[in-house]
Design a protein around this nucleic acid. Structure first.
Length: 153
DNA sequence: GCCAACGTTGGC
DNA sequence: GCCAACGTTGGC
């Protein structure tokens, strides 16, 4: 079992949207490194759901991988801004997994508190200028974030 | 809204 | 294959 962090702009698609939808294809990722990490995902892997461009930014809950990697349908959709003319159904360029809601935290674990916590040293999301929207997370970091998010205060 | 950091593109 | 120009991300 592996652990990951996925980012979403909170105003575009938040943990509340995922709670409502239950499960969606995590489409529209157009970054090779992020795609390559998604290719490594296995059904059942757990995901920290991170809100970017929000107040506060941070981890808002947990999701899980609910399908094997598959073609991102938006690359074939000429009406989509994510349409890719170089992609064909025989050789898709962009891929994604399905993501299923698990839980929303009692409170968001803010980036500020993540940066301040020595137990989270080395988390990629703390890196200055980190723009990667799909990142691996260690088991220890995952468990610690979940503990912080579930804590009542 | 600003802007630094980063990824991608394309000319050569 | 270099690298400047450009577009995007994302914290603040």
């Amino acid at each position: 079992m592996n652990y990951w962090l996925i980012k979403s702009e909170a105003e575009m698609y938040s943990i509340d949207d995922l709670e409502r939808d239950k499960i969606i294809s995590w489409e529209e990722i157009r970054n090779y490194q992020a795609r390559n990490y998604m290719r490594q995902m296995k059904t059942g892997d757990l995901l920290l759901f991170y809100h970017s461009m929000s107040n506060p930014t941070g981890v808002a809950g947990i999701a899980k991988v609910a399908s094997p990697i598959h073609a991102d349908q938006s690359q074939f959709d000429t009406a989509s801004e994510y349409f890719d003319p170089k992609a064909t159904s025989d050789s898709p360029i962009w891929e994604c997994v399905d993501v299923q809601f698990v839980e929303k935290f009692a409170h968001t674990v803010s980036l500020e508190s993540i940066k301040a916590d020595a137990l989270l040293d080395g988390m990629l999301v703390r890196a200055r200028g980190s723009r990667l929207s799909v990142q691996p997370v260690s088991h220890a970091h995952f468990e610690h974030i979940v503990g912080l998010g579930q804590k009542k205060n």
